[in-house]
Design a protein around this nucleic acid. Sequence first.
DNA 1: ATGCAAATGTTATAATGTTGCAAATTTCCC
DNA 2: GGGAAATTTGCAACATTATAACATTTGCAT
Lengths: 163, 163
Amino acid sequence: MPARALPYRPHNHDACVTQALADARDICQQRSARLTPTRERVLELIWQSHKPLGAYDVLAQLAEDGHNAAPPTVYRALDFLQQNGLVHRIASLNAFIGCAHAGEHHTGMFLICRACGNVLELTAPSVSGAVQAAADAESFELDDITLEIAGLCPRCQKDSGHE
Amino acid sequence: MPARALPYRPHNHDACVTQALADARDICQQRSARLTPTRERVLELIWQSHKPLGAYDVLAQLAEDGHNAAPPTVYRALDFLQQNGLVHRIASLNAFIGCAHAGEHHTGMFLICRACGNVLELTAPSVSGAVQAAADAESFELDDITLEIAGLCPRCQKDSGHE
DNA sequence: ATGCAAATGTTATAATGTTGCAAATTTCCC
DNA sequence: GGGAAATTTGCAACATTATAACATTTGCAT
Ligand SMILES: [Zn+2]
Ligand SMILES: [Zn+2]
Ligand SMILES: [Zn+2]
Ligand SMILES: [Zn+2]
């Protein structure tokens, strides 16, 4: 299971990436989903950035590899990774980020810093519970929650103090 | 103040639209914001649909009016309406819907039926509170909440039962 | 080997959103 | 009212994000 994400703090991110890829291989094996080289490389690229990557960012990185990919290649890989719970799409940014809780059943909640662009994924049962209750109250059958919080991360709050 | 939205139930929607426009005029007057004819017409078009309208849908409707508008016209009107709390953008749909609580300070939560496309805007203090608490726990300074719930509305749950 | 299904390559195009600048309109002050 | 300043609109081009359609290749089971 993935290590707990260290919110915004510097850390050896290569280890995060390595771990995420190892987890992904396990998860795909269990589900007999095929984590092909392109899919794995896209996942790696997304994990290597703490900030969400757009599909065309991924495309550009693939191009640097010498991989002459077209948009559908990237979108298909991203679809696969989403289907298998390995990445999340951030609707308010049109961008993708590695799932910090892959393999665990969860509904992500994303804290998006509008200054530095870093994103922290949380699972907050109290929030999910309140959302579920609100949906129930309207007899609405809940499928999927998009919950994205824009604001300032702790580091950027300090930085804006002495500018 | 706007009438309580009647979730998903049939009703005289023209009255909703009329009320929304009247409210909008009041609100803009108070804020000395200029609700110009184009902006008002865009708001009206958005309110006339229970389903969120895309910017290019609005554009097409304006074209039917004989208004030869270009995309910036629509996006600017939508920006204005958002700034003044008269419409919300639904990030997961790239579309816009009239605010059911214009003038009231609130954070919207949207129940989006994936079958019929109707959207109900709720305000759920318990949800906002839980989100705020979760952000606080990470020392994150919350600016804006995007909360969009996809699922099945009551009507569409029944409909899918006897298909 | 053969055949099928899944995955990828390729080209083109659709859908959504922005920039920059000029012209028109409104506001505000005199 | 006249005129400067600010806001709004018109317009053309462009940028970004995402998908459709169809051919080709690959992996895998019989
Ligand atoms: Zn996740
Ligand atoms: Zn930050
Ligand atoms: Zn609202
Ligand atoms: Zn419905």
